[in-house]
Protein backbone atom coordinates (compact mmCIF):
# COMPACT_ATOMS: atom_id res chain seq x y z
CA UNK A 1 0.00 0.00 0.00
CA UNK A 2 1.37 3.41 -0.93
CA UNK A 3 1.87 5.70 2.07
CA UNK A 4 3.88 8.71 0.82
CA UNK A 5 3.41 10.26 -2.59
CA UNK A 6 5.67 13.11 -3.72
CA UNK A 7 4.83 14.83 -6.99
CA UNK A 8 6.80 17.47 -8.86
CA UNK A 9 8.56 18.75 -5.75
CA UNK A 10 10.47 21.95 -6.54
CA UNK A 11 12.42 24.27 -4.30
CA UNK A 12 14.99 26.96 -4.94
CA UNK A 13 16.77 29.38 -2.68
CA UNK A 14 19.26 32.10 -3.34
CA UNK A 15 18.94 31.53 -7.08
CA UNK A 16 19.96 27.88 -6.75
CA UNK A 17 17.48 25.19 -7.74
CA UNK A 18 17.84 22.75 -4.87
CA UNK A 19 15.12 20.41 -6.15
CA UNK A 20 13.40 20.33 -9.52
CA UNK A 21 10.30 18.34 -10.18
CA UNK A 22 11.11 15.38 -8.00
CA UNK A 23 8.42 12.67 -7.85
CA UNK A 24 8.47 9.35 -6.04
CA UNK A 25 6.45 7.28 -3.62
CA UNK A 26 7.13 5.05 -0.63
CA UNK A 27 4.95 2.13 0.40
CA UNK A 28 4.03 0.81 3.79
CA UNK A 29 6.79 -1.36 5.21
CA UNK A 30 9.24 -0.30 2.53
CA UNK A 31 12.79 0.93 3.20
CA UNK A 32 13.86 3.51 0.62
CA UNK A 33 17.30 5.15 0.50
CA UNK A 34 18.06 8.53 -1.07
CA UNK A 35 21.66 8.88 -2.19
CA UNK A 36 23.63 11.50 -4.08
CA UNK A 37 26.61 13.81 -3.71
CA UNK A 38 26.61 16.69 -1.24
CA UNK A 39 24.37 19.46 -2.46
CA UNK A 40 22.22 17.11 -4.52
CA UNK A 41 19.12 18.10 -2.56
CA UNK A 42 18.74 15.27 -0.05
CA UNK A 43 18.45 17.40 3.07
CA UNK A 44 16.25 19.93 1.26
CA UNK A 45 13.95 17.08 0.33
CA UNK A 46 13.76 15.95 3.96
CA UNK A 47 13.12 19.45 5.23
CA UNK A 48 10.27 19.80 2.76
CA UNK A 49 8.76 16.49 3.79
CA UNK A 50 8.79 17.38 7.46
CA UNK A 51 7.61 20.94 7.02
CA UNK A 52 10.74 22.87 7.96
CA UNK A 53 10.68 24.32 4.45
CA UNK A 54 7.75 25.02 2.16
CA UNK A 55 8.02 23.87 -1.48
CA UNK A 56 7.80 26.32 -4.39
CA UNK A 57 5.74 23.81 -6.32
CA UNK A 58 4.61 20.22 -6.08
CA UNK A 59 2.61 18.17 -3.66
CA UNK A 60 3.34 15.82 -0.79
CA UNK A 61 0.61 13.51 0.45
CA UNK A 62 0.59 10.95 3.22
CA UNK A 63 -2.29 8.48 3.04
CA UNK A 64 -4.02 10.90 0.70
CA UNK A 65 -3.69 13.97 2.96
CA UNK A 66 -1.53 16.85 1.79
CA UNK A 67 1.37 17.85 4.04
CA UNK A 68 2.21 21.04 2.17
CA UNK A 69 1.92 24.28 4.11
CA UNK A 70 1.83 22.67 7.54
CA UNK A 71 4.28 23.28 10.40
CA UNK A 72 6.58 20.42 11.47
CA UNK A 73 4.62 19.97 14.69
CA UNK A 74 1.38 19.46 12.74
CA UNK A 75 3.01 17.12 10.26
CA UNK A 76 4.21 15.05 13.19
CA UNK A 77 0.64 14.74 14.42
CA UNK A 78 -0.33 13.40 10.99
CA UNK A 79 2.13 10.55 11.43
CA UNK A 80 5.60 11.63 10.26
CA UNK A 81 8.48 10.80 12.60
CA UNK A 82 12.00 12.07 12.02
CA UNK A 83 15.53 11.45 13.19
CA UNK A 84 18.17 14.09 12.58
CA UNK A 85 21.56 13.97 10.91
CA UNK A 86 23.16 15.42 14.03
CA UNK A 87 21.21 13.79 16.82
CA UNK A 88 18.68 16.00 18.53
CA UNK A 89 17.52 14.70 21.87
CA UNK A 90 16.69 16.55 25.05
CA UNK A 91 20.08 16.46 26.74
CA UNK A 92 18.86 17.51 30.17
CA UNK A 93 16.43 14.60 30.40
CA UNK A 94 16.86 10.90 30.91
CA UNK A 95 16.36 8.46 28.08
CA UNK A 96 12.93 7.50 29.42
CA UNK A 97 11.89 11.14 29.84
CA UNK A 98 12.80 11.84 26.22
CA UNK A 99 10.32 9.23 25.09
CA UNK A 100 7.75 10.35 27.68
CA UNK A 101 7.99 13.86 26.25
CA UNK A 102 6.82 12.59 22.88
CA UNK A 103 4.03 10.59 24.52
CA UNK A 104 2.86 13.59 26.57
CA UNK A 105 2.78 15.59 23.35
CA UNK A 106 0.80 12.88 21.58
CA UNK A 107 -1.77 13.00 24.38
CA UNK A 108 -1.80 16.82 24.21
CA UNK A 109 -0.88 17.36 27.84
CA UNK A 110 2.15 19.58 27.19
CA UNK A 111 1.03 22.50 29.32
CA UNK A 112 -0.26 20.59 32.35
CA UNK A 113 1.18 22.53 35.30
CA UNK A 114 0.77 20.07 38.17
CA UNK A 115 0.79 16.44 36.98
CA UNK A 116 3.98 14.63 38.00
CA UNK A 117 5.81 14.13 34.69
CA UNK A 118 8.00 11.20 35.72
CA UNK A 119 4.93 9.03 36.22
CA UNK A 120 3.20 9.88 32.94
CA UNK A 121 3.18 7.04 30.38
CA UNK A 122 6.32 5.57 31.91
CA UNK A 123 5.30 1.99 31.10
CA UNK A 124 4.59 2.80 27.46
CA UNK A 125 7.92 4.63 27.20
CA UNK A 126 9.70 1.58 28.57
CA UNK A 127 7.95 -0.64 26.05
CA UNK A 128 9.21 1.57 23.22
CA UNK A 129 12.72 1.58 24.66
CA UNK A 130 12.65 -2.18 24.86
CA UNK A 131 11.86 -2.36 21.14
CA UNK A 132 14.99 -0.36 20.28
CA UNK A 133 17.10 -2.18 22.87
CA UNK A 134 17.57 0.78 25.19
CA UNK A 135 15.55 -0.30 28.22
CA UNK A 136 18.62 -1.00 30.35
CA UNK A 137 19.73 2.58 29.92
CA UNK A 138 16.29 4.15 30.44
CA UNK A 139 17.28 6.09 33.56
CA UNK A 140 20.56 7.48 32.20
CA UNK A 141 20.74 11.14 31.18
CA UNK A 142 20.78 11.46 27.40
CA UNK A 143 23.83 13.68 27.70
CA UNK A 144 25.92 10.68 28.76
CA UNK A 145 24.96 8.23 26.02
CA UNK A 146 27.23 6.90 23.31
CA UNK A 147 26.40 8.29 19.89
CA UNK A 148 24.99 5.05 18.53
CA UNK A 149 22.68 4.74 21.53
CA UNK A 150 21.43 8.30 21.00
CA UNK A 151 20.38 7.28 17.51
CA UNK A 152 18.34 4.46 19.03
CA UNK A 153 16.68 6.88 21.44
CA UNK A 154 15.78 9.10 18.50
CA UNK A 155 14.21 6.07 16.90
CA UNK A 156 12.14 5.37 20.02
CA UNK A 157 11.01 9.02 20.12
CA UNK A 158 10.04 8.84 16.47
CA UNK A 159 8.02 5.69 17.13
CA UNK A 160 6.05 7.23 20.01
CA UNK A 161 3.39 8.69 17.75
CA UNK A 162 2.95 5.42 15.81
CA UNK A 163 4.25 7.03 12.62
CA UNK A 164 3.13 6.06 9.13
CA UNK A 165 6.30 7.54 7.68
CA UNK A 166 9.74 7.61 9.25
CA UNK A 167 12.38 10.02 7.92
CA UNK A 168 15.96 9.23 8.88
CA UNK A 169 18.60 11.75 7.84
CA UNK A 170 21.96 9.96 7.65
CA UNK A 171 21.05 7.57 10.43
CA UNK A 172 24.52 6.02 10.64
CA UNK A 173 26.67 9.15 10.30
CA UNK A 174 29.08 9.60 13.18
CA UNK A 175 28.85 5.95 14.26
CA UNK A 176 31.62 3.39 14.36
CA UNK A 177 31.27 0.85 11.55
CA UNK A 178 30.11 -2.10 13.66
CA UNK A 179 27.13 -0.14 15.04
CA UNK A 180 25.91 0.95 11.62
CA UNK A 181 24.54 -2.31 10.30
CA UNK A 182 22.79 -3.03 13.59
CA UNK A 183 20.93 0.28 13.58
CA UNK A 184 19.67 0.01 10.04
CA UNK A 185 18.66 -3.61 10.59
CA UNK A 186 16.65 -2.45 13.59
CA UNK A 187 14.90 0.24 11.53
CA UNK A 188 14.15 -2.35 8.88
CA UNK A 189 12.63 -4.77 11.37
CA UNK A 190 10.44 -2.03 12.85
CA UNK A 191 9.29 -0.97 9.41
CA UNK A 192 8.23 -4.49 8.52
CA UNK A 193 6.42 -5.32 11.76
CA UNK A 194 4.62 -1.99 12.15
CA UNK A 195 4.04 -1.27 8.49
CA UNK A 196 6.01 1.98 8.53
CA UNK A 197 7.27 3.57 5.34
CA UNK A 198 10.93 4.47 5.88
CA UNK A 199 12.89 7.01 3.85
CA UNK A 200 16.57 7.54 4.68
CA UNK A 201 19.62 9.32 3.31
CA UNK A 202 22.99 7.63 3.59
CA UNK A 203 26.57 7.95 2.46
CA UNK A 204 27.64 4.45 3.42
CA UNK A 205 27.03 2.40 0.27
CA UNK A 206 27.32 -0.92 2.08
CA UNK A 207 24.35 0.13 4.20
CA UNK A 208 22.38 1.37 1.20
CA UNK A 209 22.91 -1.64 -1.05
CA UNK A 210 22.71 -4.09 1.81
CA UNK A 211 19.45 -2.96 3.40
CA UNK A 212 17.29 -0.72 1.19
CA UNK A 213 14.35 -2.12 -0.75
CA UNK A 214 14.68 0.64 -3.31
CA UNK A 215 17.20 3.41 -3.99
CA UNK A 216 16.58 6.94 -5.27
CA UNK A 217 19.55 8.83 -6.73
CA UNK A 218 19.51 12.62 -6.66
CA UNK A 219 21.93 14.73 -8.63
CA UNK A 220 21.84 18.53 -8.79
CA UNK A 221 18.24 18.56 -7.59
CA UNK A 222 16.98 15.99 -10.07
CA UNK A 223 16.05 12.37 -9.66
CA UNK A 224 18.35 10.51 -12.04
CA UNK A 225 17.57 6.95 -11.09
CA UNK A 226 15.04 4.94 -9.09
CA UNK A 227 14.94 1.24 -8.55
CA UNK A 228 16.07 -1.86 -6.76
CA UNK A 229 19.62 -1.66 -5.38
CA UNK A 230 21.08 -4.13 -7.86
CA UNK A 231 19.61 -2.13 -10.77
CA UNK A 232 20.75 1.27 -9.52
CA UNK A 233 24.22 0.00 -8.72
CA UNK A 234 24.93 -0.83 -12.36
CA UNK A 235 23.13 2.20 -13.85
CA UNK A 236 25.57 3.96 -16.17
CA UNK A 237 24.62 7.52 -15.19
CA UNK A 238 24.74 6.77 -11.48
CA UNK A 239 28.19 5.29 -11.88
CA UNK A 240 29.36 8.26 -13.86
CA UNK A 241 27.94 10.96 -11.56
CA UNK A 242 28.18 9.44 -8.15
CA UNK A 243 29.45 5.97 -7.51
CA UNK A 244 32.46 6.05 -9.78
CA UNK A 245 33.54 3.07 -11.84
CA UNK A 246 33.16 -0.21 -9.91
Amino acid sequence: MTALVVQGLTKSYGGVQALRGVSFSVSTGELVAIIGPNGAGKTTCFNLLNGQLAPDAGDITLDGRSLVGRAPRDIWRLGVGRTFQITATFGSMSVRENVQMALVSRERRLYAPFAAFPRLYAAEADALLERVGMLEQAARPCALLAYGDLKRVELAIALANRPRLLLMDEPTAGMASEERGALIALARALAKTDGIAVLFTEHDMEIVFGHADRVLVLHAGELIAVGAPEVVRVDARVQELYLGAP
Binding site: P72, A88, T89
Partner: peptide
Protein backbone atom coordinates in the same frame (compact mmCIF):
# COMPACT_ATOMS: atom_id res chain seq x y z
CA UNK B 1 8.38 18.79 37.54
CA UNK B 2 5.16 18.70 35.50
CA UNK B 3 4.75 18.48 31.71
CA UNK B 4 4.85 22.30 31.51
CA UNK B 5 8.38 22.44 32.93
CA UNK B 6 9.56 19.53 30.84
CA UNK B 7 8.09 21.07 27.71
CA UNK B 8 10.00 24.28 28.46
CA UNK B 9 13.20 22.28 28.81
CA UNK B 10 12.46 20.40 25.60
CA UNK B 11 12.18 23.69 23.72
CA UNK B 12 15.48 24.85 25.19
CA UNK B 13 17.42 21.59 24.74
CA UNK B 14 16.54 20.94 21.11
CA UNK B 15 14.04 23.27 19.45
CA UNK B 16 14.11 21.33 16.18
CA UNK B 17 13.41 18.06 17.90
CA UNK B 18 10.67 19.67 20.01
CA UNK B 19 9.00 20.99 16.89
CA UNK B 20 9.33 17.56 15.30
CA UNK B 21 7.32 15.97 18.14
CA UNK B 22 4.46 18.41 18.10
CA UNK B 23 5.64 21.09 20.54
CA UNK B 24 4.92 24.74 19.77
Amino acid sequence: GAPLGYTLRAGRDAPLRADAIGID
